[in-house]
């Protein structure tokens, strides 16, 4: 499913994550910046992909700026950004 518009969710506060989603060029591109990339980088990428699959997003540019968010926060932010990008909320 395509992303129709640029959308975001979350903040740059410590323990939060900022997710920005934009219409893609036919593929799913994910960029990740995280204060805990060494400790949790792989785990974060896996969760982002999982949530995007649930949302059936396969054509988008996604930018993740993580400030040490827990997994539940990350899931919520990615889901919200995806729904906003699809124009569902």
């Amino acid at each position: 499913m395509d992303i129709k518009q640029i959308a975001s969710a979350g903040t740059m506060e410590s323990s939060d994550v900022y997710v920005e989603i934009a219409p893609g060029n036919g593929t799913l591109e994910i960029s990740l910046e995280s204060v805990v990339v060494q400790q949790f980088g792989d785990a974060i990428r896996a969760v982002v992909l999982e949530v995007l699959q649930e949302q059936q997003v396969d054509n988008a540019n996604v930018r993740i700026v993580d400030r040490g968010a827990l997994e539940c926060v990350l899931r919520a932010r990615v889901e919200t950004a995806a729904l906003r990008g699809k124009g569902n909320v």
Binding site: S14, S15, V35, V36, Q39, F40, R67, G68, A69, L70
Partner: peptide, 8 residues
């Protein structure tokens, strides 16, 4: 100290 700071 808190149990964790910024997920750590």
């Amino acid at each position: 100290a808190p149990m964790f700071r910024a997920r750590l």
